[in-house]
Amino acid sequence: MGEDAITKVSVIVSKGSLEGVYPALIMANGARADGIAADLFFTFFGLDAVHRRRYEHVKVATVGNPGLHVATLAGGLPGMSSVMTHYMERKMEKLDIPPIPEFLQMIADSGAGIYACKASCDLFDIARDDLVDEVEDIITVGEFYAHAAGGQIIFT
């Protein structure tokens, strides 16, 4: 490894859609798999990915998502998001990409820290018990920066 090799990353997850959550999980997990220290910090709608009752139901955004190549009107039809999510999940399973609950467990087991944003938890009335066990703590912005010290910060 060169002198400028990355040795630590802190990945912030601010989106609550499937395509908003997965890249961050893949980045954090991939860092650990390469021996790079990693932390995940869930904020705003990203909190759904660590919310006990919601993390199994994170969906693909079928409206306002031009990359999906589905007409906006069609994307807004009832059930469209579920259908697209189901389709994506099947494809991901084939590629050995785990569902969110298993992925979080994997990342926690790899030694990465998983944190939730205090301001967002206050905003959405989310308590510690609403969050999955993999979450180590609800922390402030200042605490996040302290955790992130000496590494790269990736905002997604």
Binding site: A33, D34, G35, G111
Partner: peptide, 11 residues
């Protein structure tokens, strides 16, 4: 990860 801290699959 305890056995291979620098990345299990790779190491």
């Amino acid at each position: 990860y305890e056995l291979f801290p620098k990345g299990p699959a790779k190491t």
